Amino acid sequence: MIAFHPRTLVFAAASFVLACGQAQAESSYPNRPIKLIVPYAAGGTVDVFARVISPGLEEKLKQPIVVENVPGAGGAIGVNKGVKSPADGYTIVMGIVSDVVLAPLTESAVTYTYKDLEAIGPLGTSGLAVVANPSIGINSFSSLITYAKANPGKLSYGATGAGSLPAVAMESLKRRTGIDIEFIPYTSASKIALDLMGGHLDIALSGLPALLEPIKSGKMMAIGVMSKERDIGSPEIGSAGETPELGGMDFYFWTGLFAPKGTAPAIVSKINEAFAEVLQEEDVRIRFKDYGVKISEPMTPAQFADFVAKSNADWEAVIKSQ
């Protein structure tokens, strides 16, 4: 007969109780509101996306989705808050390429990496727009380059954070064309828009969806989108890829949902399935198309994790080459 030390029995019993408790928590998930961190200010592109999907997620998961805007440092403050949140499924993050991949690669103050997040699923890709104050008279990439070359150092542009996709894209354009435009970093896209319309800023780069209304009302002039192809929602706006001076340039946003590292696979899968179902709803697809969002094909969490890892490797190579 095998004898067990009392401490061994206590440890085994405690482990069993813990495992049972975790399994029960996963099976009953969710049983309270879920916080969705948006690492940008209200009214920006990512905030708009979060509020489009939240009602559908609430319906699928049967719990309120509470959007919490945590702006600053080009999205890094919000993502960092998500990284440090309990890995229980009650805090998720809407992340984009800027804050999940680029910020850790370009900003020494950022202490997390994409590996500190559990990938849940992709939303899609969307346009990075360049706009101007209408008084300058710039309405295309070619006219921007011509004006900047004739007036070196006179123009200024705003973007959220030095390591953000808008800033990286514009600095790439400056290097490629040899133009000199002063960079002014901002904490929020909404403040950039206000300063541009108020005449305190010449050029701005931000997600196109949040800029559509001021473009349509004439308060901003669209220069173009920084991708190879034109935006699916606003095909009248030109693209960098079709501009001779910028041949092959292709910058765009990808967006997805993430959870803190260590969140149970069963919980991640449940959110993934609900999210994928929401993105197939006709009214949601129509709204995103109007915003110029190309909704991704459904991916498992593992497939989305591979996508993010590849994006990180691609951007790391780009940054090292500069």
Rank of each mutant, 00 (worst) to 15 (best):
L117A: 03
P104Q: 08
L257H: 02
S85R: 07
I267V: 15
I232T: 02
A103Q: 15
V10A: 13
L9D: 01
I237G: 07
K149T: 03
I184L: 15
Y114V: 03
G178M: 11
D306V: 04
N69Y: 05
S206Y: 06
V48F: 09
A76C: 05
G292N: 09
G238D: 07
L102K: 01
I232F: 11
E297Y: 06
A266M: 07
F4G: 00
Y90W: 09
G72P: 05
Q303M: 05
M221K: 14
S269N: 15
T177M: 13
G95E: 09
E282M: 06
G207N: 08
D88Q: 10
A210Y: 04
D195P: 07
G43K: 01
I34L: 14
T91E: 14
P55G: 06
F49H: 13
I237K: 07
S188N: 13
R230E: 06
M94Q: 12
S28N: 12
S142T: 14
S140V: 12
D283G: 04
E282S: 15
L61G: 02
S140K: 10
A119R: 02
V79M: 09
G262C: 12
S98W: 11
I319G: 01
N69C: 13
A313I: 02
S217T: 14
Q63C: 04
M94F: 13
F307T: 00
E277D: 14
L257M: 11
I92N: 03
W315P: 00
T263G: 09
M1F: 13
T263C: 12
P33G: 01
A264Y: 12
I237C: 04
T300A: 09
G178C: 04
T177D: 10
N80W: 10
P235Y: 04
T187A: 15
E277Y: 03
S269I: 01
G292E: 05
A167I: 01
E236F: 12
K228G: 13
I232M: 11
R285P: 03
Y147K: 12
P298I: 08
L246I: 11
G74L: 10
P134V: 06
A309F: 13
V67W: 03
D231H: 06
M299R: 04
A266P: 00
V70D: 00
I267N: 02
P209H: 07
V17N: 01
P71Y: 10
R176S: 08
D195A: 09
I37A: 04
